[in-house]
Amino acid sequence: MRDRFRAGDPSALGEAYDEHARVLYHYAYRVCGDRTAAEDVVSAAFLEAWRCRGRVHADGGSLRPWLLGIATNIMRGAAREARRRDAALARLPERGVLPDFADDVLARMADGEQVRAARAALGRLRRREREVFTLVVWAGLDYAAAGEALGVPVGTVRSRLSRARERLRKLAEAELRAAGAVRGRRGALVRKAGGRGALVRKAGRRRRDGPDGFRGS
């Protein structure tokens, strides 16, 4: 598969798409918080991968870490374009949201709220921590694969993740205090859940399409 991709076999591109597109899409959606942007990232990542296919080494494991790394880079480089995208946000409802069953729409709104809250919390992390965090925790890469995706040693993945943990813990504690002060506040951006103070309320249906489990090889 790797060899065929590298050699420019079109069927290998199709197979790579079938195997990895959804994972890339979920990853990009969680990071961008927007369907259209996520689709753009997915297609840009595959096209970039195809363009650079000569750089894929002949032997190795799954293409997934490499693809996720490319997607990360695209989202990082997208800051310039974000200027336009910010303007485009005002157009969101036109983006193909077709009339639907009411409860489905409600469910979607709840989802949107959770994505927003999660992204707000994510925004409190430094970019390097954030990238490692989303690759390992949200996209399900193991440490070695995340290191491969980002071009950093495994030890760096570890240290960034523990910095992320410190920061998120502090954030969660602050949230708990705030929630204690204003009890029963509705519509809070970040909610506490039971147990250890997760930053985002965990809905029962969260696991529906939760982290895309993957262990790089």
Partner: peptide, 30 residues
């Protein structure tokens, strides 16, 4: 970490959009 900030649920790529995206990627690349 997953407990502190779990992956938020995101809508699936619909079959329609998936087909469209796959086609666009393959066509452009090839």
């Amino acid at each position: 970490l997953a407990e502190l900030l779990p992956a938020p649920p995101v809508p699936e790529l619909t079959e329609d959009r998936d087909r469209h995206l796959r086609y666009a990627v393959l066509r452009t690349a090839l």
